[in-house]
Design a protein around this nucleic acid. Structure first.
Ligand SMILES: [Zn+2]
Ligand SMILES: [Zn+2]
Ligand SMILES: [Zn+2]
Ligand SMILES: [Zn+2]
Lengths: 143, 143
DNA sequence: GCCTTTTATGAGATTGAGTCTCAAAATCAA
DNA sequence: TTGATTTTGAGACTCAATCTCATAAAAGGC
């Protein structure tokens, strides 16, 4: 048994969930992708060999793999776009509360400086960066 | 005329676009939002006084305001979720080249440390952060 | 094996933010 | 005022993601 399989099996056991056939197929398919993948692509890959695994089961299994610490979505966004005006408004970064959706604004100068250093190290010219920090705000922590 | 109006009018002129009634109404509504707003909320706000401004026009005007440098969407990343496996992989940043799509992976330790400091300052518990840096890679710069 | 209870599944319907279509309306320069 | 051109409103459409529910698979006791 590969070690990532063990991680998943242990996670399932801890949560009283079953290692079913579809879950096993999905796990293998995920670990064949050594790149970033979207779920539609994963669905197509799985379907080549396993015509009976449904889209719903894939969508249900992905969060389990995330929770198990096996995969993550490094580009995760919010489900809808939110805007703010920037004219006459200092640049800042956003701490988004995943419980109440509140946004805390914080200075971004240090981050920008650090990113500039990192970019220089890789001879990369930054055009823009998107940073979303999600977590729990003070108020929600105290509930 | 407020200065943000001037910015928008100049932008429209430069691009041979017209300052129409709906565009003007939308601009005012946007600048009444001193918070982050989503378009559905903006639509409802506008609808209170202007029942005839359509959702489509709002969706069409927002990118103009972005292009004019008046607003931005600081949280937008990609239109669909993408994943990568993290098990046995050190955490890293993504420098994505907008010319050739190459992804340069860089260490994220310093960024994490800095974010932790910022979060602590705001009594915020970080669950995850997502950072995507886009720009031009070394190779493409030399072309 | 068998029965029972619980959990998971597949297929397809539904959601909802965002986009597109197109006939009608508004704009503006001549 | 005219007429070419741009913009608009209404609603149809898209598509990733979620939900529903009847059926199927799993696990434990026997
Ligand atoms: Zn909160
Ligand atoms: Zn902000
Ligand atoms: Zn990566
Ligand atoms: Zn490049």
């Amino acid at each position: 048994m590969k070690s990532y399989e063990k991680v998943f099996v242990d996670f399932l056991k801890r949560n009283n969930l079953k290692l079913t056939h579809p879950r096993s197929i999905i796990l293998q398919a995920v670990f064949r992708n050594h790149d970033h993948f979207d779920i539609e692509t994963l669905y197509d890959q799985i379907r080549v060999e396993h015509k009976n695994v449904s889209r719903a089961t894939i969508y249900r299994t992905i969060p389990l793999l995330v929770e198990a610490g096996l995969i993550k979505n490094p580009l995760r966004q919010e489900s809808k776009d939110r805007y703010e005006y920037i004219y006459g408004h200092r640049d800042h970064l956003h701490l988004v509360c995943s419980k109440c959706s509140k946004i805390i604004e914080a200075g971004s100068k240090q981050i920008e400086k650090l990113l500039a250093e990192i970019a220089q190290k890789h001879d990369f010219r930054i055009e823009e960066y998107n940073l979303v920090v999600s977590g729990i705000c003070k108020k929600c922590l105290n509930k």
